[in-house]
Simulated scan of single mutants.
Amino acid sequence: MEQIYQAMLAPSEALVNDIARIEGDIILLGVGGKMGPAMARLAKAAVNKAGINKRIIGISRFSETGLEAELNGLGIETVAANLLNDAELQNLPTAKNVIYLAGQKFGTTGKESYTWAMNTYLPGRVAEKYRDARIVAFSTGNVYPLSPVKNGGMTEENPAAPLGEYAQSCLGRERMFQYFSSLYGTPLCIYRLNYANDVSYGVLLEIAKAVNEQREIDLRMGHVNVIWQGDANEIAIRALLHCSTPAKLLNVSGPETVPVRWLAAEFGKRLNKQPILVNEEQPDALLSNSAECFRLFGYPHVTLRQMIDLIAEWVVAGGKTLNKPTHFQEREGNF
């Protein structure tokens, strides 16, 4: 299982070719989050495979013990900094390419002001600091409203209509980056993701664990989009070649509109457990149409069934997981 997992994290030839075309070094702001460490490792592996000289620099508070040393051991440079501390932000190194991963979601309720500071104020400061770089700014499909399942998800042409303060602050993040992109001519890609999955976190893991632990699965948010974290990370790096002014909007998700009921049944087969399903599917859900992403980068390399198989095996084996739930069932925008 570990060999299969590692193979699914390796850089593709397309990434190796593209990273050789990306001029300059790459900074990952907020590298210590769910996706950042794997993205840094993937970028460094692609640089090594391409045989080029390109610095990968990860910036974070590095609250997770051992992460900074691990990245350093792979040849990834790191800087420990609190991005909300403006003196520390201004002292950060510069580069021609920035992937912005910082953000706040969980615990928004009761800490709304901090969420807005992280998701809206900070992006403006970062956009000014890195005005001369290309920027891929992570956002979320939560900026869209719920849409009818039969429509196949919202496209980049659909207007944003975020539900709740978390999603509103994420649209604020986009608007700050767009404003400074327009002001300074900064090439920008707004990367609207939902939902990345790994063996350690994600919608698929949450459903698998609920089936395995015989907990109820709420079907009201009855359909989801999912994509393998490695594919999402690869797209983020390659998107540096597609930054533009005005900003490029890019939905990033899997190609399927996946029924939660079907996912629960598939995990039930693999785990030999009967899923406990409650409530009924509603006619709308938080869904994105990523046809433009597939046009630019091709379809994801890791299929839905591969993800299901691997995550089921991971749950059975008691593999390490993160306590970072997606709250994909949330229909009122409260996080």
Rank of each mutant, 00 (worst) to 15 (best):
N158C: 12
P159E: 06
P159Y: 07
A160K: 00
A161K: 09
P162N: 04
P162T: 06
P162C: 05
P162H: 05
L163C: 14
L163M: 15
L163Y: 10
G164P: 09
G164F: 08
E165H: 15
Y166Q: 12
Y166N: 06
Y166K: 07
A167T: 05
A167G: 02
Q168P: 08
Q168E: 10
Q168V: 12
S169R: 15
C170H: 15
C170I: 14
C170M: 15
C170Q: 15
L171T: 14
L171I: 15
R173C: 12
R175E: 06
R175P: 09
M176I: 13
M176H: 09
M176C: 14
M176S: 15
M176N: 13
F177H: 07
S181L: 07
L183E: 06
L183P: 05
L183V: 11
Y184E: 06
Y184Q: 11
G185M: 14
G185E: 10
T186S: 08
T186Y: 08
T186G: 12
L188C: 03
L188N: 02
C189H: 02
C189S: 04
I190V: 12
Y191C: 03
Y191P: 12
Y191N: 07
R192G: 09
Y195I: 10
Y195E: 00
A196K: 00
A196H: 04
A196W: 03
N197M: 04
N197F: 02
D198W: 13
V199C: 14
Y201G: 03
Y201I: 08
G202Q: 02
G202V: 06
V203K: 01
V203N: 06
V203R: 07
L205K: 01
I207L: 09
I207E: 05
A208N: 00
A208L: 00
A208E: 09
A208C: 05
K209A: 09
A210Y: 04
A210E: 03
A210N: 03
N212E: 12
N212A: 10
E213V: 05
Q214Y: 01
